[in-house]
């Protein structure tokens, strides 16, 4: 029983191969090269897509237990709850149908008025229902992974919304899944408009506490606590008029020329299973053609001029 160290059973002296330091050096250099390639050159997109596709079966296995629980609990729903839910949904559908009729009439009227004015027509964009596979593996990165990928026609740059507002943007597309960066992520910027007075600005995720910030706005800016922020649509990615966030704090300190504005996202960022992926609108503005397939960092650079405009 007294076998303290397994390696002592080796007969040869040099059976351990290259020394640990040599191995470490080799692999450290290899990973540093990988990090540099991925961070600066963006060469590894296809490699990543391929590997993620290989890992997809494992993902399905990992999701299986939860899915089984979900399915069986749905199966075991009692009949009364189903009937109750059915009645509720029917009344809701009726209410929505009435509103939809009114909306259609309004839309036709709006389009006619717009064509009279010679303004660009706002086309409605088709949306697809995607199911969330998991919140990202990294609890500090504000990303979620959904079950639609490039095979289903999702492209990077599409907006993701839920029934209450903007959730985020598709940033990476894999064959069977895609990654949605939430509006609370530090790297995502959303061009917004204050619903009360139409002031345009850019909202950035703050990266912590699930909040959104609006930096670089002057201290005397006309934004109050409780203001609703909606998408302005001038980026050509998000449809105009979607709710984004509500201002929860406006802090103007005398020693700073900028206001410190903190907003809370309106969409259920943390607590939903499904969301809608909205197609990128057909480009009518020349600027929006370049927004296809650009990364978020490039995008935020692109929308920077609008911010200047808002500050005037």
């Amino acid at each position: 029983m007294a076998r303290a160290i397994e390696s002592q059973h080796h007969t040869g002296f040099f059976v351990r191969g290259p020394s640990a330091t040599a191995r470490l050096f080799f692999f450290a250099v290899l990973s540093l090269v990988l990090i540099a390639t991925d961070a600066r050159l963006h060469y590894l997109v296809e490699v990543r897509q391929g590997f993620i596709a290989l890992l997809h079966p494992l993902q399905v296995i990992a999701n299986a237990p939860l899915r089984l629980i979900d399915d069986s609990s749905q199966y075991l729903h009692t009949q009364t709850t189903v009937v109750k839910e059915n009645i509720q949904l029917k009344t809701q559908a009726l209410e929505h149908a009435a509103e939809l009729q009114r909306f259609q009439a309004l839309e036709v009227e709006n389009e006619r008025l717009r064509s009279l004015l010679g303004a660009a027509l706002i086309s409605s964009q088709p949306a697809r229902l995607a199911e969330i596979l998991h919140m990202g593996r990294d609890p500090f990165s504000h990303k979620i992974v959904v079950n639609l990928g490039s095979r289903q026609g999702v492209v990077a740059g599409q907006a993701a919304i839920d029934e209450t507002g903007v959730v985020g943007q598709v940033t990476r597309v894999y064959p069977f899944s895609s990654e949605v960066t939430l509006v609370t992520d530090k790297e995502l910027a959303v061009p917004v408009q204050v619903a009360r007075n139409g002031l345009r600005a850019i909202a950035f995720g703050s990266g912590r506490d699930a909040t959104i910030e609006m930096p670089s706005l002057p201290a005397n800016v006309d934004i109050r606590k409780g203001d609703k922020l909606i998408t302005s649509g001038i980026d050509g990615i998000y449809p105009a008029g979607l709710a984004v966030a509500e201002v929860v704090m406006v802090d103007t300190t005398p020693d700073s020329p900028f206001a410190h504005i903190v907003c809370k996202p309106l969409a259920g960022i943390e607590n939903h299973r499904q969301l809608l992926i909205v197609s990128i609108p057909k480009a009518e503005l020349p600027a929006s053609t370049s927004t296809l397939n650009t990364s978020t960092s490039e995008r935020s650079k692109k929308v920077a001029p609008t911010k200047r405009h808002a500050n005037n």
């Binding site: 351990r16 191995r23 470490l24 692999f27 990988l34 991925d38 961070a39 990202g136 992974v145 990654e179």
Partner: peptide, 30 residues
């Protein structure tokens, strides 16, 4: 058992973790 699972294995496992977290390629590997 370092003769079965050494720095190389760890590096590859780290690469897989990089893939599933969707972070920068190579940071978990390093």
């Amino acid at each position: 058992a370092p003769h079965l699972c050494n720095i190389g294995t760890a590096w590859f496992a780290g690469l897989v973790v990089d893939l599933i977290t969707g972070g920068l390629f190579g940071q978990y590997a390093l």
